[in-house]
């Protein structure tokens, strides 16, 4: 609870924030602080300067366009939960955000923080990977875009270089019937700590076959893991596809070397992947068949 002496600055714009980051080598971004402040309490962070972007309105917008929803990195979980745009276009974002921690944390924690922290128990890295989201990275040379898969590179690691800020996230709006499902296995109680998660996304194309299939597992690898063999198996099937076990069986679980810790053993995590994958696919397929999400 007793932080090291630290400097603090509140920039007035994203440009100023980037300039500050580049002027002070041990500077770090403070957004919602719902992970960072805990790190600082334990005195394990290397930051000596905090650049507080939590009040930058330009990073807190949820914008709707024909193709995408754009969410500013400093948008809080609670703002996502209550966003009409999200509710209409991609409700899984709100449903998943609602599972994070508690009301207090959701009121301050941000989607950008969730992504940049990239703890294997975090909710958004797998979800954004499964949604095919684009991460908008801002640095002194301007805006750059990368896919979520490129962004989440390892345990607590992202592709952000020093001096860069995650400015926003662009999430595609499917133009055809689709399904999104996020299925966590929480240990220690309901929505307490995600030991393993599987997220599934499917779309149904005009001829009635499944496409854009993405199945992503976390808790079993350093980064959100695309279960490509499952995706390939499901791709091109009809909307009535029901051989979930067959699809999941294509994935070579023995290739996984999930970590063992006090929350769950590696073996248990590995065993949970197919269970959650079946459940996630089932939920996503039900939505596709209904043609809408409830």
């Amino acid at each position: 609870m007793l932080l090291k002496e630290i400097s603090y600055v509140r920039p007035h714009s994203i440009d100023e924030a980037v300039a500050l980051l580049n002027s002070y080598p041990e500077a770090g971004i403070l957004a919602g602080g719902q992970s960072l402040i805990n790190v600082l309490k334990m005195r394990i962070g290397a930051y000596s300067t905090l650049v507080d972007i939590s009040a930058l309105e330009e990073l807190k917008q949820i914008r709707d366009s024909a193709e995408f929803i754009s969410i500013g990195a400093a948008t809080t979980y609670d703002d996502i939960i209550h966003s009409p745009v999200v509710m209409v276009s991609r409700p899984i974002l709100a449903e998943t955000a609602f599972r994070i921690a508690d009301q207090q944390v959701r009121n301050r924690g941000t989607i950008g923080g969730n992504c940049c922290y990239n703890d294997p128990t975090c909710h958004f890295p797998p979800l954004l990977t499964a949604m095919g989201a684009t991460m908008q990275v801002y640095g002194s040379d301007g805006m750059r875009e990368m896919s979520a898969e490129e962004f989440f590179v390892g345990y607590y690691q992202t592709a952000l270089a020093s001096g860069q800020i995650l400015a926003g996230i662009r999430i595609p709006k499917p133009k055809r019937p689709y399904g999104d499902a996020f299925v966590p296995l929480s240990v220690g109680g309901t929505d307490v700590l995600n030991a393993v998660t599987v997220t599934a996304h499917v779309e149904l194309d005009e001829p009635g076959t499944l496409t854009a299939v993405r199945v992503v597992a976390t808790g079993v690898a350093p980064q959100p893991l695309r279960m490509t063999s499952v995706e390939d198996f499901v791709h091109g099937q009809t909307g009535q596809f029901s051989d979930l076990a067959g699809a999941v069986a294509t994935f070579d679980m023995s290739s996984l070397e999930p970590p063992s810790d006090v929350h769950a053993s590696g073996l248990y995590r590995r065993r949970m992947v197919p269970v959650l994958a079946r459940r996630a696919l089932k939920m996503a397929l039900e939505q596709v068949r209904r043609g809408y999400r409830e």
Partner: peptide, 29 residues
């Protein structure tokens, strides 16, 4: 305050209309 990781909620206050944990925010903020 009853913890040091933002779990217990004993430090909960309402700031600018939002429910927050006051151990998860700097006073300068």
């Amino acid at each position: 305050f009853g913890c040091d990781t933002g779990h217990c909620g004993s430090c909960t206050v309402i700031a600018n209309g939002k429910l927050i944990k006051s151990c998860m925010m700097l006073a300068v903020q």
